[in-house]
């Protein structure tokens, strides 16, 4: 067994262990709606990054404030780099900096 996964809810500031939280899968997926192609729907609904390493995820503080938020986590070391609001389409700069100091050479997709 491993230690409990602990994430801090960015809304109520509570350190929650995983039994309080509901996982919601990969974050920052581009949503597609009516008029999109089959490939776009497939990418949005099913295709997942599933990386060994840095991963951005959606979580819900299910047994707390009930709100969705984002977390940046490492799927191999289980280190948590930080949590942040669900209202953004990309990880904020301080989260990216936190990851870069821990994972040299890491880059947010599309960043040079």
């Amino acid at each position: 067994m491993r230690d409990m996964l602990i994430l801090t809810c960015p809304y109520c500031g509570i350190r929650c262990d995983e039994t309080e939280l509901a996982p919601g899968g990969e974050a920052h997926l581009k949503r597609f709606g009516p008029g999109s192609s089959d490939e776009e729907f497939e990418a949005y609904l099913f295709m997942r990054a599933n990386p060994k390493g840095v991963h951005f995820e959606r979580w819900r503080h299910a047994y707390g404030c009930g709100k969705w938020f984002h977390a940046a986590r490492n799927t191999v070391t289980l280190e948590v780099y930080g949590t942040y609001s669900a209202q953004v389409h990309e990880p904020p700069q301080e989260i990216r900096d936190a990851i870069s100091t821990r994972v040299p050479g890491w880059r947010w997709k599309g960043e040079s």
């Binding site: 067994m1 491993r2 409990m4 996964l5 995983e18 996982p23 060994k52 995820e57 289980l78």
Partner: peptide
Amino acid sequence: DGFINYTQRGSFSHI
């Protein structure tokens, strides 16, 4: 478990 993890160790809560 409900989230991605490559460590071959799971959550106590599931046990």
